[in-house]
């Protein structure tokens, strides 16, 4: 299914995906993550059918596709969250800095430290204050936190939330608006200084203004952190992502620089999806 136009489409066999278009775009960023023939299932249902895809360092990569195409499952495999679900299994490899995170002896707990995640629905811990939420990743794991307030401020500033909450830090995280809650969750992830940030439809529960703020934030963060964002909103992918991958029915249909994927899709199915003929 990936034969149509060699030059643009990932070749699963070799795991090589550098495309002509990318070569043209001059300096290539390093690969931070590469999934190799990644397969994931719930029970007997295979939702990812062999995905090979690079995630470039300090770039924003968008995963698009119709609902049920496996895009959420894909990012959940990148920090080993998929396997926490009921009857979920994974096969294949995910290379983080060239090392397989599914190899024997790797503790998923440590991987999740390096690869942070923001969920579809904002999920601040309701039993904790705003400040405690920011520090949750450290406090829950029993780490000593030497400069609490500095860290809280730094993470909240990174998440562009500091000015709004600096006076109400002891309040419950649940008291914030939806968009603020989501930025609090981003701050919570950033406080751990992750190398990669996975965002699973982070704006789907938010209103347009809150969405715009998060997108702005993604732009700023993209210079420091490798970001993978799942979205069903193509305009959003166009606005925030350097690279876009189109998934359909558990398979990777197309991957390339966002401009190219949206203006000159190599695959008919990509074009159909982008132009709204299905999905």
């Amino acid at each position: 299914m990936m034969k149509a136009t060699e030059s643009f489409v990932p070749t699963a066999e070799k795991g090589r995906v550098v495309t002509i278009a990318e070569r043209e775009s001059a300096i290539l960023p390093a690969e931070k993550i590469r999934s190799v023939d990644l397969r994931a299932s719930f029970g007997a249902t295979e939702v990812l059918k062999g995905i090979t895809l690079p995630i470039l360092e300090r770039q924003v990569t968008a995963i698009i596709g119709p609902s049920g195409c496996g895009k959420s499952t894909f990012v959940r495999c990148l920090n080993r969250m998929h396997e926490t679900a009921h009857r979920a299994t994974v096969a294949g490899r995910v290379l983080l800095d060239g090392r397989d995170i599914y190899r024997a002896g790797i503790d998923p707990v440590a991987i999740r430290r390096r690869v942070g995640m923001v969920f579809q629905k904002p999920n601040p811990f309701p039993t904790m204050s705003i400040a405690e939420n920011v520090l949750a990743g450290l406090s829950l794991t029993g780490e000593r936190i030497p400069h609490r307030m500095e860290l809280v401020e730094k993470a909240l500033r990174q998440a562009a939330l500091w000015d709004e909450v600096k006076d109400i830090l002891p309040r419950s995280g649940a008291s914030l608006s939806g968009g603020q809650q989501q930025r609090l969750c981003i701050a919570r992830a950033l406080a751990l200084d992750p190398e990669v940030l996975l965002m699973d439809e982070p704006c789907s529960a938010l209103d347009p203004i809150a969405t715009a703020r998060i997108e702005e934030l993604i732009h700023e963060l993209g210079d420091h952190v490798t970001i993978v964002i799942v979205t069903h909103n193509m305009q959003q992918a166009g606005r925030v992502a350097d690279h876009t991958a189109f998934l359909y029915m558990g398979e990777l249909v197309e991957y390339g620089p966002t401009d190219r994927v949206f203006t000159r899709p190599a695959e008919q199915r990509t074009e159909d999806y982008i132009t709204g003929r299905f999905g």
């Binding site: 800095d97 090392r99 503790d107 440590a110 991987i111 390096r114 794991t141 860290l151 200084d193």
Partner: peptide, 19 residues
């Protein structure tokens, strides 16, 4: 706080937590 330089160390989980 961890620095990103020692990211190889970050793969290991402190034994105490695991125990």
């Amino acid at each position: 706080m961890n620095s990103r330089k020692n990211s190889v160390d970050r793969i290991a989980l402190p034994g105490r937590r695991k125990i």
